[in-house]
Simulated assay, not measured.
Amino acid sequence: MPHVHHDHAHGHTPAVSSTNERVVLSGFVLTAGFMVVEVAGGLWSGSLALLADAGHMLTDAAALLLAWLAFRMGRRASDARRTFGYLRFEVLAGLVNALTLFALVAWIVWEAIQRLRDPAEVLAGPMLAVAVVGLGVNCLVFWILHRGDQGHVNIRGATLHVLGDLLGSVAAIAAALVIRFTGWMPIDPILSVLVCLLILRSAWALLRGSFHILMEGAPPDVDIEVLRRHLLDAVPGVAAVDHVHVWSITSGRVLATLELALADGAAPARVVPAVKRALADRFAIGHATVEVVHAPPADCALAGEPRGGAAHGGNRADAGHDHHHRHGPDSPPHDAVR
């Protein structure tokens, strides 16, 4: 089966720019720097809430560092072995970060249980001072991140992490005030567990998103059946759309492969570019591989694949092999246009 070139004209994706790199790096330096201060303050004051917030800041610092590395790696050119470059590094980094968050939550909850059984004395003064400074640092980092491209998942994710840090600092301030004015020590481990819930929520969202991309699932804003109907209705000359697969290489970089059957008299040279424009404009799919067949495809159930099947990144050589068996050696030739 003859193949023509890939279409590398991508749709809009958030820029991997030097501005984004500087924003993320500045946020990392501030977050990591104060994290060290907060750990020292937590150990000095005996506050588990401060240590929990420092743990949250540790994960944020790791997320910012991984985001910066993802920007750097994402700019590396593709080669013959890695045809999409290092774009998926961001997803792998997110998966590692999520697993680290779960481990941290387990440790803090265990420590909180021990302290509820045997409350430890907490120095409210140092705890309050560190928590107030932490709130100021988080506000500064939040402002810095808002100078970056909020359309990029790394920037947006880091901003959400910092919002969680802000709540963690507020919780530490509240615990310090309660201890200072009432002397009730259990408030410290109780609020540390509340901070853990913030961490756990971020960890689950990050793990689920990373795993979905690694499993080559369809992006949440792309409905395969809606996509098929849109191409049939919006692009003249399209008679059938089948074997639709949509997946993401990384955040904002969506790819698709599909098979078209054209109406009588329709010219592939006109229909295929129109299909790619429709995919880019309506679904933000900037890299599409389109295979054209001269006759409507047979029922997909006969080929062992559901109509508009599950998204994955299968290669077109397998698709060609499948057609050979379905149509037989005497079937008309196919035109594969990419």
Rank of each mutant, 00 (worst) to 15 (best):
I108V: 15
A93Q: 07
L123F: 11
I144W: 00
A158C: 03
N154T: 01
G148M: 02
L123Y: 07
L128M: 09
H152I: 01
Y86S: 14
E90W: 02
G134Q: 00
L87I: 05
N97D: 13
G151A: 04
N154A: 11
G134H: 00
R75A: 04
R72L: 13
N97L: 15
G134N: 01
A98W: 10
G134C: 07
T83R: 08
I144N: 00
A120E: 14
R72D: 09
L135D: 10
G151P: 09
A98F: 08
G136F: 06
V96H: 13
G94M: 09
R147M: 00
Y86N: 14
L128V: 01
W107P: 00
R115D: 12
L135H: 06
A112E: 10
N138I: 01
I144E: 00
Y86D: 11
A106V: 14
L116A: 07
A98D: 01
E111D: 15
R147P: 05
M73Q: 13
D118F: 11
T100S: 15
W143Y: 07
T159A: 14
L101Q: 15
V132I: 14
L92I: 11
M127T: 04
A77F: 02
A93D: 12
L104V: 15
N154P: 04
G151H: 12
V130A: 10
R156G: 04
E121G: 09
L128D: 03
L160R: 13
G148F: 01
Q150R: 11
H146W: 08
G94C: 03
L145W: 03
V133E: 02
R147T: 11
C139T: 12
G74A: 07
G74Y: 09
D79C: 08
R72I: 05
F84R: 06
A106E: 09
V109F: 09
P126H: 12
P126M: 13
T159D: 06
G151C: 03
Y86A: 13
R76Q: 14
R81F: 12
V109G: 10
A124C: 07
V105H: 09
A129K: 11
V130R: 10
F102T: 05
G157K: 04
S78H: 05
L87Q: 12
T159R: 08
S78Q: 14
L116D: 03
L145I: 04
V130Q: 00
M127D: 03
A80F: 12
T83S: 15
Y86C: 04
L101D: 00
V153L: 13
A93F: 08
A103E: 12
L160K: 13
V153Y: 10
V105W: 05
V109S: 06
A70E: 09
F71K: 04
Q150P: 10
R88D: 01
G136D: 10
V91R: 03
R88L: 02
I144T: 05
